[in-house]
Amino acid sequence: MSTPRLLVVEDDAHIRRFLRTALEAADFNVFEAANVARGLIEAGSRQPDLLIVDLGLPDRDGRELIAELRSWSSAPVIVLSARDREEDKVAALDAGADDYLVKPFGVPELLARVRAQLRRSSVNIGGDISAVVHFGEVSIDLAARIVQRNGQPIHLTPTEYRLLAALIKGHGRVLTHQQLLLETWGPGYAERGHYLRIFMGNLRQKLEVDPSQPRHLLTELGVGYSLAGLT
């Protein structure tokens, strides 16, 4: 695989500078843009494998960039955001972002997220119905709909399975409550966030080693859930 190409859309020159240094040191090919207009041009011409987008940009909102990008590209997008604006994060994720990172963040964390997103796009399960996927002690046969833990079959209710399947489909991404509710229960359940918490609790009981400290079925508080460590 050739050197992945990354596009950083960020208005602060210092942050751009350290992102470039850190990412180039990690063997990525880095392009920069300081605003949405420039970012869209770069995204179109450079065809990046992944984008890192700041939400607060001088000309337009980073969210608009993501929405526009999604009309012609499925490249993963990592959003940079301020901690206390959950609604911004949700909006960005709903617009099509895959993950978000809270400022201030550390370089190792950023690199881990970037690698996870790139890996995810390589683990493609979208159309492959015969695939068997694994996380932790759990294996799921998507074709036969069989879930096993340490080789023992685990019984999941139909709703639990639908929720798990939605998480698997979007694994590595942060899935917002709305996305999961729509995927699992269908339209009309937008106001029933507590359904998710109950079924996620049940899934953790059945699939996690320590349900109180989940390692795979992760909570993104105020935003949604994500499934980590799927292979």
Partner: peptide
């Protein structure tokens, strides 16, 4: 946080939550 709580600028985004989940997130 303090300034915001004090000025009353914080609106609670209440929802039916599982304490276990929130505690897990805090511990993480």
């Amino acid at each position: 946080d303090m300034a915001r709580l004090q000025s009353g600028a914080v609106t609670l985004r209440r929802d039916w939550q599982s304490l276990e989940e929130v505690l897990g997130s805090a511990r993480r």
